[in-house]
Amino acid sequence: MLLKKRKRESAEINGSSMADIAFLLLIFFLVTTTINVDTGIGLVLPPPLEDDQEPPPIKERNLMNILVNAEGRVLMDDEPKQLNEVKASLIEFIKNPTNDPDLAETPELAIVSIKTQRATPYKIYVDMLDEVMGAYKDLRDEASRANYGVPFSSLQDESPQQEQIQDMYPKKISIAEGGDS
């Protein structure tokens, strides 16, 4: 009997092109991936007022009224201000270094109220909010440097130090709905 030895085809999958396929997929995902971080100005809205509920009484001196009108002009406590002046006057209002009877009693009591009108440009509003946030950031940084020698942002999240600084300068920002007047 003649047994012909047959050449068996190898049952292995040719793996040489695997790298190519993987590269192709890799490049596809590389191109479609966007690693972006969302950034923005955070804010906490106040709960809605009931109709019969009176707003809590606030001393006038502790309240800084900022009005941004339809033309994008800024009024701070009825004084017209440029956008770049907002930060400095806010810091003065919150800290009140000279114990002015018209400015906030203590930084904890200071409230910033932002009023807008329906036609206020959003860009101006954000710029103004940015200035307000900047004022608080500067104040917190200053307090943090004085107490712990590091800027506020390098304090650990939810640490007692961070909470202490936050209690010193709480961000009390109220967004009042705009009248059309």
Binding site: D38, T39, I41, G42, V126, D130, K137
Partner: peptide, 10 residues
């Protein structure tokens, strides 16, 4: 718009 004093949302 652009702003300076912003926070990241992780």
């Amino acid at each position: 718009t652009q702003a300076e004093n912003i926070e990241k949302i992780e």
